[in-house]
Amino acid sequence: MSRKIVVGFDGSEAAHRALEFATGRAKAQGDSIVVAHVLEWSPYSFLTPNELEERHKRRNEELSRAETAILAPVVAKVEAAGVSVTAVLKYGHIAETLVQITKDENAALIMIGRMGHSGLSSRIFGSVAGTLAQVAPVPVTIVP
């Protein structure tokens, strides 16, 4: 039975490792991959009048940049490996949005890389991996 694996992908080294790991698994088990890129965004942030005016324009620019520079190359790479793949691009809180994408796609697994932050910063700000481990509705694989 073919399942979907959501891979949280931010273009980092760790994300590439996670995607490679997921590709290997998917190939072995006949699963498909959803490459999910989340642009960090809070609707409760504070913006200047100028930023408000240009927001829609900037958003379009950010989306097309993420599409061409981050998603397109890796999607092609996964396809070349012979695994069926789609890409999702969204704004929002990273962990919460990954959970939402998992629900929307009806996926069976989440795989993410680990940035390796420890200590104070992750204690204060939390980490995506830590949050996902607590709130994800499906099993989460964290690739070191």
């Binding site: 609707p43 504070f46 829609h56």
Partner: peptide
């Protein structure tokens, strides 16, 4: 707010500014 509009100017942001 439609979640698909995330990344656009929200009501909160317009009010805050």
């Amino acid at each position: 707010s439609d979640p698909n509009d995330a990344g656009e100017v929200s009501h909160f942001q317009a009010l805050a500014t």
